[in-house]
């Protein structure tokens, strides 16, 4: 059985995961204490996957989909009615006119304004 809860296999092939680096790549912020727990859990999951390394996969084509010959289709390149923009925008957390708004990405002179101030201003202007 590849995954056995509890017993670690020693981890000959398993690297030590740099959880802070991975969290950064994943845009996740680990709270105090969470990093150590995450490290332990991921490490033990990966150690139980050690058996995968005993398989010889040389020359084997990888499968990225579900079966041979399955092809992704493309839409014909033509204009057609899609989801109405306004319906989509209704689910967006912050909208101004028909734009999705996010906090300022560049720094201008002066102190940056709070997102909720800006949003409040838009709402007032849009009469919402």
């Amino acid at each position: 059985m590849p995954l056995k809860a509890g017993a670690g296999s020693g981890g000959k092939h398993t690297p030590k995961i740099d959880v802070k680096h991975v969290a950064r790549l994943a845009m996740l912020k680990l709270e105090d204490g969470e990093a150590e727990k995450m490290q332990r859990e991921l490490q033990s999951i990966l150690e139980h996957m050690e058996e995968l390394f005993s398989l010889d996969v040389k020359g084997v084509e990888p499968s990225f989909g579900s079966f041979d010959g399955a092809e992704l289709r493309l839409f014909p390149d033509e204009v057609r009615a899609g989801l109405c923009r306004n319906e989509f925008l209704r689910g967006v957390p912050a909208v101004r006119d028909s734009y999705v708004m996010v906090p300022r990405t560049g720094q201008e002179q002066g102190s940056p304004r709070k997102n909720n101030e800006i949003e409040g201003e838009w709402r007032a202007r849009d009469g919402r």
């Binding site: 995968l52 390394f53 398989l55 996969v57 084997v60 084509e61 990888p62 499968s63 990225f64």
Partner: peptide
């Protein structure tokens, strides 16, 4: 990639 190959197997 290894997992994708095992998937083929």
């Amino acid at each position: 990639l290894r997992a994708a190959k095992v998937r083929t197997l």
